[in-house]
Amino acid sequence: MYDCGKIAIIGGGSWATAIAKIVVQHTHHIGWYMRRDDQIEDFRRLSHNPSYLTSVHFDVHEINFNSDLNKIVEAYDTLVFVVPSPYLKNHLKKLKVRLKDKFIVTAIKGIVPDENLICTEYFHQVFDVPHDNLACIGGPSHAEEVALERLSYLTVGCSDMEKAQSFAEILNSQFIKTKTSTDVIGIEYSSVLKNVYAIAAGICNGLKFGDNFQAVLIANAVQEMARFLQSVHPIERNVYDSVYLGDLLVTGYSNFSRNRVFGTMIGKGYSVKSAQMEMEMIAEGYFGTKCMKEINRHWHVNMPILDAVYNILYERIAPKIEIKLLTDSFR
């Protein structure tokens, strides 16, 4: 069995905190990179993240905090990246230590802007990390529910099944069940698309569409997702598995979904800027929409929901008009 060695968390948000909670319960030691020293000092003093999931308490003696990314990367074998995708490049600009020999796990549900690459491909192309040293975490998994120890299911994707299984074992607990997959590309793209579709669901909610239409929207969304995944990575997969459809459902329907909340505000008439200012956390689907639209210019997949969300967010088409056109295309 592959040994994941010493594990470090890269990022200080709610999902990073939830994953840290899971991992440290198993390993009793983690490294944790947070960019702000004041956040680290408050965390040490309070024994919880001062900004996110404040009800989750840690034994801070089990955590090696550091605001120097190079020191964390140098000292740890497995690096779990949980930073918002728009900020990943800026964090990695500070890096002087080689990543090639590390086991990289991305829990980022987004695409690297400008590069238009899913995160594992970005690590592969820019930092020369081999594909069998790259993994991703997917699945219906709101950080808030993990923090409350509500039963959740996660999928670890990696081309090396032994490494996937080893990391899955670290995540396993009484309230976390895990499975493994080799479909890294499919898991990453579906985790981006479900954020886009959750924004669409939120917009429709803000426009006062009911549950009947929401069901039709999600049914069309999973078909759209399947068409795209089969075009970019044509393998045999069951798109109704929890890591694809399950993640789409929870993000599209849950009140914990920041993308749905963001979409609801847009549907109610907020501008993109005012919605972003009012939210305390980043709705990655906003950035993911533009990236996916640009990526699909190469693939030419029929994606009317993606197009509608893009037109509302970036072309400033009135939500009422754009969603009316979208409803006419559904059956």
Rank of each mutant, 00 (worst) to 15 (best):
S152L: 05
M292H: 05
S173V: 08
A164I: 05
I185T: 14
E224K: 03
D38E: 13
Q25R: 10
F167P: 14
D241K: 00
D211Y: 10
Q125V: 06
A147T: 01
T155G: 03
Y122L: 06
R260D: 12
I203F: 02
D247E: 02
E188V: 08
G252E: 03
G139Y: 00
T251W: 00
K177Y: 10
I218A: 05
E74W: 06
Y244H: 00
I104R: 07
K268E: 15
E121I: 04
L151S: 14
Y286Q: 08
G31M: 02
T289P: 08
K290Q: 09
Y33M: 06
L151K: 12
K102P: 12
V272D: 01
A168E: 04
S231G: 04
D241C: 04
A20M: 07
T78A: 09
G110K: 05
D114L: 09
I9V: 10
A164Q: 07
T106V: 04
T251Q: 02
T78M: 07
G110T: 02
L229I: 11
C158R: 08
A8R: 05
L245Q: 02
M277K: 15
T327Y: 07
K102Y: 04
H91Q: 09
I321H: 10
E149P: 06
E162F: 10
V73E: 04
L53A: 11
Q230V: 00
P84F: 09
L229W: 00
V126W: 03
I323Q: 09
R36S: 10
V261L: 13
E74M: 06
D114V: 12
L313Y: 04
E121M: 07
G11L: 01
I266N: 05
C204A: 12
K89A: 08
L151R: 07
L248F: 01
E115G: 05
E278A: 14
T120C: 09
A168L: 06
L79S: 07
G13D: 12
Y2F: 14
F123W: 03
I108L: 08
Y240Q: 03
A75W: 01
N64E: 15
R98S: 14
G252K: 00
N255V: 09
L326C: 14
S141N: 15
A8Y: 02
A168H: 09
L306I: 05
I176L: 11
K177T: 14
I218F: 03
N90I: 04
K320D: 15
D328I: 00
V309Y: 03
V126M: 06
E121Q: 09
Y87E: 09
R45A: 11
A164L: 07
C4M: 01
I9N: 06
A221P: 05
G202L: 00
T27W: 05
I185R: 04
L92C: 03
Y197D: 09
E62H: 12
M1L: 11
N70I: 13
Q230N: 09
R260G: 01
E322S: 14
C158S: 15
K102W: 02
F65K: 03
H298P: 02
R331T: 13
P86A: 06
S231A: 15
K273P: 04
E121N: 07
S254P: 12
G288F: 01
T327E: 15
R258C: 13
D211C: 06
I108F: 06
L325S: 13
T178C: 12
I218W: 00
I40H: 08
C204L: 04
Y87A: 08
E115S: 13
T17W: 04
Y314T: 12
D77S: 11
I317E: 15
A219T: 15
I9K: 05
K293F: 03
P84G: 10
E41P: 03
V126F: 07
Y286V: 12
